[in-house]
Every structure is written in structure tokens, then in C-alpha cells.
Amino acid sequence: MPSRILPEHLLQRRDLWVGTRPAAIAAEPTGHAALDRLLPGNGWPRGALSELIVPRPGVGELGLIVPLLARMTQAGRRVALVAPPHIPYAPALRAAGVDLAQCWVVDANQAADIIWTLEQLLRCPAVGAVAGWLAMADERVQRRLQLAAEHNGDAGGAVGLLLRPLAARQQPSVAALRLALQADAHGTQVEILKSRGGRVGHSVSLVMP
């Protein structure tokens, strides 16, 4: 075991990364315990982008992020959904524990508007989480958004979620976390495609109400 071999004073160093131990990552719990266990920091990374590959609307993407929205809004932080494909249904959000007074939706059609809106929201210190449905996002755009997400790093930073179509799965991504979603019989199959500071390749099946 490396922790026995290394002298104690080396282990104290923050710039030394020991392979078997996940790096400390600021994160917000996803609300799904099975998924949290697989993620570094046990949740959505804060001040970073996470990418969710969604083959079609309704495979469980909203069910996956609703616990985050509920947690954030109940803590008094604002959350925003940008360019969602359907109407986020207020009675269901309310039943899932989301404080609607802190929940905002932005309608935008043009990719440029969506990207600009996401950037503005991610930079705002008053916003806790942003989810954006974005079909086209090349690496340049992703870096822009990643920078915006890091903008408020001191204050903890916002959780940035990008919901991307299946075609995006093959594209390179700068996101700190990439998940691929698929509907299965009882809920949603989540596969970890990329996880900065964590391990990839695992899948977990989440049961959703």
C-alpha cells in the first residue's frame, strides 16, 4: 500500500496526488447515492462543466438533476434551465421539492443566444446551478463555458450541466464529468464516460419514481 511506504510529511503535501485516493473536488451531491459513490467528490463538480449525453428527451435527465435543483433552491440559491426541450412542469417540480421561487427558465432558440446565456448565468455569483440544452458546442464554446463556470471559483462556483444529444458522445469534450444516459425498464442507466479525478467505465442503474 503506498500510504504505508510514503513518509507522513509527503502525504501532507497538497500538490502530491496519490493514485488510489481521489483528489479533493468541490462537489454537490447528486441526490442519487449509487451514483455519488462513483463520482470523485461524491457529486456534481462545482465550478466546472458536466456533460450529460441524452439520446432523446425524457430518458431521465430531469429526474437525474431534480434532486440537485431541490437542494440548491431550498438553500436559497437560484437555479436556471436554459432552452429546455419541453416545459419543466411546475407541479412536478414542486412535488420533487424544488422551491419554485428560485427556479428560472430561459427560452432561447439560437445556439449563440444559448451559449451567451449559459455564460452569463455561470458567471453570476447568485446562481447555484445551470442546466443548458445545447445541441452544438465545439471545443471553443466548451472552453468558454468552462471558464465561465470557473469564474466564481472562490465562492464555490456554480454547477454547470450541459445536456447534449447522442451525436456529442463521439466529440472531444473539456467537461470535468461526462455521463451517458439511457432509459431502462425501471429508471435510467447512467454510464460514466469521463470523470476528472475519478474512474471511468462504470455504469449505474438509477431507479426513478
Binding site: 414542486r94 419554485l100 427556479c103 443566444d113 446565456t117 452569463q120
Partner: peptide, 20 residues
Amino acid sequence: ALVDRLRARLGDEALWQPGL
């Protein structure tokens, strides 16, 4: 200030809160 910027660019109707 952010709400103002968003509304200025996207229109007043583009930003809303889901309500009951």
C-alpha cells in the same frame, strides 16, 4: 443586473419562472 441583460438580449418573455 443579470436579469436585465438577459431580457435586453432575449426579450422580456424569454425569462420566466415556472409557477402554479
